[in-house]
Simulated assay, not measured.
Amino acid sequence: MPHGPLYPFEGKQPVVDPSAWVAPTAAVIGDVTIGPRSNIWYHCVLRGDTNFIRIGAGTNIQDGTIIHVNAGRQATSIGDDVTVGHAAIIHACTLMNRAFVGMGATVLDDAVIEEGGVLAAGSVLPPGKRIAALELWMGNPAKLVRLLTVEQRAGFDKTAPHYVELSGRHRASLGGA
């Protein structure tokens, strides 16, 4: 199998760009599109059954993350060069280009992380909340902690290309899987 487990749901088949990588233990189900150079890591579940999931280019969805939708109301849209840390929950929300979601964080229905916004590890972004560019939010419920400098935010931007490179190494180690 070229990309790991891809499962149709009610006639909708996941679409994975040939340059993307999906770990063999991930499950990608239904109306899910994964863009160029994006990478979906071990034990992730992307379930596009009652709405769609769209993931742009160069995005990394790290191990154990769950991505889901809201039936008929809210899809999940993830832009380019987004990082979603290990064991996050991304539910019926929008992560714009270069958004950063820390390990174990949760983003709930209708929430938005704008380009360059950061949600800290372990935080919960409540439904309908919006993190603006260069904002760092933290806590449960997550609240604005401070604005990041451009230099501080640049450190977060190193993660997505690192994971693109690392996913290529995993693909090669698994014999092209």
Rank of each mutant, 00 (worst) to 15 (best):
I89Y: 09
R171F: 07
A121Y: 14
T94A: 04
V69I: 12
F52Y: 13
P8Q: 03
S173C: 01
A92S: 12
G79I: 06
S173A: 14
A20E: 07
G64N: 09
D81R: 13
F100V: 07
P161V: 04
I78C: 01
Y163I: 06
T76H: 11
K12Q: 14
D49L: 11
V112Q: 10
A172I: 00
H43K: 03
R54I: 03
A92P: 11
V45W: 01
G56C: 02
A88K: 02
A23T: 01
C93Y: 12
Q74A: 13
F52V: 01
R146L: 07
P18E: 11
I61A: 07
G117M: 11
R73C: 02
F156H: 10
I113T: 10
A57S: 14
P161N: 01
I131Q: 04
P141Q: 00
T33Y: 09
H43N: 14
D81C: 03
A87E: 13
R171C: 05
I34Q: 00
R130G: 03
C44G: 03
A120C: 12
M1K: 13
S167T: 06
V15I: 14
G155P: 00
I67F: 08
D49H: 02
W21Q: 15
G175T: 03
M96W: 09
R171T: 06
H162L: 12
L119F: 13
V107R: 06
V45N: 08
P24M: 00
K143Q: 15
A105H: 02
A23V: 02
M96E: 15
G72S: 02
D49P: 04
V107F: 04
H170K: 04
Q13Y: 12
G128W: 09
G155R: 14
G116W: 08
L6T: 08
G168H: 12
G56P: 07
K129F: 12
R171L: 05
Y7K: 06
G155I: 05
T50D: 03
N60T: 09
V84M: 03
Q13S: 11
R37V: 06
A133T: 15
Y7S: 09
P126S: 08
K158H: 07
F52M: 06
V145C: 00
N97Y: 08
H43Q: 13
V145W: 14
D157I: 03
I131D: 02
D63V: 08
W137Q: 05
S38D: 03
G116P: 10
P18C: 07
E135R: 13
N39W: 08
A154I: 01
I40R: 00
S38L: 10
L95N: 07
I61W: 05
P126V: 13
L119W: 12
I78V: 03
W21K: 09
E135K: 14
S173I: 01
H43T: 15
N140Y: 08
D81A: 11
G48V: 09
E165R: 15
A121V: 10
I40V: 15
V45L: 14
P5A: 05
A154T: 00
F100H: 13
M103Q: 10
A26W: 10
R130W: 07
I29P: 05
N51Q: 06
A105D: 08
